[in-house]
Design a protein around this nucleic acid. Structure first.
Lengths: 249, 249
DNA sequence: TATTTGCAAATTGTCGAAAATCCTGTTATT
DNA sequence: AATAACAGGATTTTCGACAATTTGCAAATA
């Protein structure tokens, strides 16, 4: 009998904040003044600070002592870093899952692959919702490694996944309309599923890493196009301060 | 130009709590009632909850909604898991560092290895402080991977390192008095340094993993002696997993 | 006897205000 | 003119009290 405990306001607002950051409603480098957030989310300072503190640890929020919180910045450097590490971790988990997985694991892969592939296939579905695309893909990728047997590896993986979501969000809509690219992705993932179910770890990892490489290249293109805006925002922020100082002197 | 900001009480008490948990002053599963902590650390609830919230995210503290916080439990299951993942992550970082490291990196390895090895060698130093042993070893191991080039990998590694510290602490004093074991460790680490400086990644990783395996075996022995009965019941399962890991390499 | 119900005590979670700290623009000093 | 010292205002951080929730225990019920 699992006792259902009422979630605290802190955890509720944590999820809301996380979602707002991941979807870009709160922009990178944006300042997060408590006074504003209090009104926006309709609660007091304590649970807010609690939520923000948690987000600091997993890297979505940055804190400067005595100067409050802000959304963690985005950078190309970090983007390449996270994707690189994420691909390696994913391979590691994949290898372990292939060694450990049982029948239920295989069944789960087939099920989530079915749902994901049918949904995003432009030949079957013309109206894909980027949000749902992301959700289904997440479930599919998770099903592959779920059976790796290591809670900590899954925890680390989840953390990296969350981080990359922020970068993906920048250009997710672009992907939806790239019919040719989508079909390529489908074919590649299909090969991946086949390799995993055949318990061919080496091949599976190779395909997985290849998929990551393509994804990185694609996303980086979009990022370079759009990041200037994101960065300009913070730069202008800094420059405004600089300018003010210059004017006065 | 680095402005020194005064640290908040929350961050101060965070470090104190972390230290108390890592050194075992706060026992695993021990309840952490705020009323008690308030008196113990001499401050109010808000910064305390903030610190505890952070510790929840990185896994040192467990929270149950509406029922407060407690020190995260220790279990053999988790012990094997963390060490396994940590060894793999360490190999990954080692490989990258060997590929990326420069002269300064090599120099740093030699320096910290010198300090560490001289200090723990029972033929040179009879009065070793376990705390300092741990500190020097930490610095030495960090120097090996520092040049891996990935901030995120280092962050993950640091997190796992912290976690294992708690398990090590249970039996750290035993290690200090095992003269033969210490000399064995020294020899092994010496070979590791040689392999790293020779940029022989494969060999280095092999030695590193071998060292972890020995460490796991040794620590597990001590843990089994000291841990309460209830926790041991999954032991056979864990050992099977260890077997699998051993065979693979 | 075993299970459920209901109340009191204890503890957690939240609030609003007070204290501490930082930033900005002005004035004083060299 | 450049630098340092200093208030005023804004923001962050902390406190102490209040509200909400759980837990323990005893009485009631089957």
């Amino acid at each position: 009998m699992n006792k259902q405990r009422k979630p605290t306001k802190a955890t509720v607002v944590l999820e809301k904040l996380q979602d707002d950051i991941l979807t870009g409603k709160l922009a990178p480098e944006e300042k997060l003044p408590i006074e504003v957030l209090k009104k926006k989310y309709g609660l007091s300072g304590s649970p807010l600070r609690e939520a923000l503190s948690r987000l600091v640890v997993n890297g979505l929020v940055k804190e400067e002592q005595q100067c409050g919180f802000c959304v963690a910045p985005l950078s190309l450097d970090e983007f390449y870093d996270i994707y690189d590490i994420r691909a390696r971790i994913e391979s590691m988990a994949l290898e372990m899952a292939i060694a450990n997985g049982d029948d239920a694991w295989e069944a789960d892969i087939l099920a989530s692959w079915h749902k994901f592939s049918k949904y995003i296939d432009p030949r079957l579905n013309k109206n894909v919702d980027p949000k749902k695309w992301d959700e289904l893909q997440k479930e599919f990728l998770f099903s592959l490694v779920k059976a790796c047997g290591s809670p900590w590896l899954l925890k680390i993986r989840a953390m990296l996944f969350e981080q990359t979501a922020r970068y993906r969000a920048v250009c997710i809509s672009a992907k939806v309309h790239d019919e040719k690219g989508t079909i390529g992705l489908l074919k590649m993932d299909e090969k991946l599923v086949a390799a995993v179910l055949a318990r061919d770890a080496q091949n599976a990892c190779q395909i997985s890493e290849e998929a990551y490489r393509m994804s990185v290249a694609h996303t980086a293109e979009e990022l370079k196009k759009r990041m200037p805006e994101g960065i300009k925002h913070t730069e202008s922020h800094n420059e405004r301060r600089e300018e003010k100082r210059r004017k006065r002197s």
